[in-house]
Amino acid sequence: MIEVLIDEAVLGLMLIIAVGVLYQRNLFAAAMLTSIYSLLAAALFVVMDAVDVAFTEASVGAGISIILALGALALTCGEQKARPVFALGPFLLVLLTGAVLIYGTSDMPAYGDASAPIHRHVAPRYLEDSRGEVGPPNVVTSVLASYRGYDTLGETVVIFTAGVGVLALLGRRRRKAAKPAEEEA
């Protein structure tokens, strides 16, 4: 019971922040609010027992991505220029998509349902045998590093490539900007 209340309180706070980000004109403040948003998302993952996901969300969402956003803002300016205009067509499209998504969730098994297919397929084997088959005390680690090792390798390559790309973009622009200043001096 209390867990559901916490869930809802955190979700409500996230909703308020999301709307606040939309209305915020100052881009720095918007970036900072995004970092609160991902802190709360991580807290929500903890409440739902997905501790490993929470770790990732905290370090990537609240840590690295905010720093990347600031790096991007350093190259541009801090205020949103164009005033947003209300457009009926896109608004209806968004509403429709949202409604379809919510309709889709009604077919999913209830949250925490022990008889849901996902809990009956391979999860019991991971939970019972991973200690003997792989070793680490954390089941998620065994799943990621051993049972789904190739999958994880692919993911890591993608993330690494993305990281290198972002660094290359941000780094090159800055060096170019620094050069004329040196010539003047």
Partner: peptide, 16 residues
């Protein structure tokens, strides 16, 4: 995780 958050929060604020 709480410990990691405390660290990340500090690093993030200092970076900002």
């Amino acid at each position: 995780i709480a410990l990691v958050y405390a660290l990340i929060n500090f690093i993030g604020i200092i970076a900002v």
